[in-house]
Structure formats: structure tokens, C-alpha cells
Amino acid sequence: MSIGAGPSGGALIRKQVSNLLYAHPRLFLTLLLGPPLLWLGVVYLGSLFALLLQSFFSIDEFTGLVRREFTLSTYAELFQPANLDIIVRTVSMATAVTLAAAVIAFPIAYFMARYARGRLKAFMYLAVMLPLWSSYLVRVYSWKLILAKEGILSWVVDKLHLNWLLDAILSISVIGGPSLSISYTGMFLVFLYIWLPFMILPIQAALERVPANLMEASADLGARPRQTFRKVILPLAFPGAVAGSIFTFSLTLGDYIIPQIVGSSRLFIGQAVFIHQGTAGNIPLAAAFTVVPIIIMGIYLTIAKRLGAFDAL
């Protein structure tokens, strides 16, 4: 190519490509969205579909092999008392964790959104996110040590002469146990700790979007602070709480590590899936168990939509 004879070949092609894309925005959009849609459509939804398909197969009692014929018998198996127990146990835990997380997260999120400024705000963000920087397993094992019978919590309780209180809690039939580290109470505490950031951040984001003058307008019209909170702040923070609860609820429903490390031998859904697809080799039942959280989340989101949680989106 001679210098000064117009754009070089490479530049010319680039120019033509730009012009082509500019003239055909749909083509540009297709190129842009193609790879992520392929990922979402084939890899993600595809594997989900394969999973659903598995749940309609059954396992041969004798050979232990998967029978590839359509049947609902695997789903019927879910309703056996032992399996139903697992589901009820997991959903109860997820509900308790979600409610407690919302109650604890709200004041923190409110403070972050309304009062914290500058360095304090940065510090708050850091404090909320920091636990996510370290390994999940390490944190769960640390909690096991904290909650163990000879752990730091028992030691503190002992120093405070509150042994009677801890014993009283542990002696309650369902939520108690030999020690906090092998009880539902301990598991609840660990779940709450692990998922709390996922509740704080969406609520904080929702509160951040509420203009301050709405609160002034409310007070101006005669609403006392409690009324402003109930009628203005809470409804506007609700979508954030629902978004957070989707995280805490679904993550608790699917988790199999915490129930295994902190807790008794009673199974949760995640553990059931783990065991059935692994040692037991019952892939259809594992798949059917996996469908349970999906259905529960579907119902949950429908109710949330009915309550108007997504109206502000």
C-alpha cells in the first residue's frame, strides 16, 4: 500500500464493518447478545431441562439402574413421610432464616442508606461484604468451633454465668440438642450469618432510592414518624426485602454444607440431593428433590408479586 493513497486495507475493512453494524442495528444486537443467550439457553436452561427430565424417570429396585420411561412414581416417593419431613424441615429453616435476616438487616440497611456518609458509608459496605471475601467452608467450620461444647461461645456464656439460659435453650425439644453445634439453633445462626449480606444489600439499595423529601412530605401532611415508617418507608423498602429474601430463602433451600457441618444427622433437601445422586445412585429421586425448591420459589415469587413487591421495578 502506498502512503497517502487513502485508508489502508485493515482500516478500510474496519470502516466497512462499522458502517454495516451502524446501518443494521439488529445485526449488531444479535452479535452482542448471541454468546450470552447461547450460554443461558443451551448450557443453563438445557441442563435444567435435562434435570427435569431425569425426575420423570425411575430407578429399578433390583438392578439399581435408571429406567428411562415416563413415570410419576419418583415424585410420589417425595411424599413418603421420611422425604416429606426433609422438605418441611428445610422450608421451615429457610423461612426462619429469611424472616430473621430481614429483621436484622433492615436497621443496618436503613442506617447505611439514610445516615452513613463518606468514609463511614465505605466502611459499612466493607464490613458487610468482607465476610464474602473469605472461603465459605472456612467460615462455616469457624462457626462450628465457636458453637462447639468447648467453644468460645460456651466459654463466654460460662463467664457471664448464663449457663442456665443456654441449657434452657438446648433443652427445648426441636430446636435444642446436646450442644449448639449440633442443633437447629446453631444451624440457624450459621445460615443467618452466611446469608445476611444478601439481605442487607438489596434493602439498602431500595432505601437509597427513596427520595428524602417523601419523608418530609409525609411529616408535612401530619404523619408521625411511626406512621411515615409504616406507610412510606416500609412499602418502598419492601421490594428490596423481597429481592433479599429470594437470595436467603433459595440459598437456604439448596444448601447442603451447613446442615452437614453444623447440625444433627437429620437431612435437608441439599443433603438429600447430594446423597441420592452420589452414594445411592438414585439420580431420578435427586432430580425430583431439586424440583422442590424450584416449585417453592415459583410459589413464593407469585405471592410476592401479588403483594405488589415488584410494582416499583
Binding site: P211, A217, S218, G308, A312
Partner: peptide, 13 residues
């Protein structure tokens, strides 16, 4: 006293 706000401050919900 009551106020009419500059950007109206209507309750969106």
C-alpha cells in the same frame, strides 16, 4: 402548614 414540593414528592406506591 402544608407544603407543595418543588418536585411534588408524590408517593410512588
Amino acid at each position: 402548614v402544608n407544603t407543595v414540593f418543588q418536585d411534588y414528592a408524590l408517593f410512588p406506591h
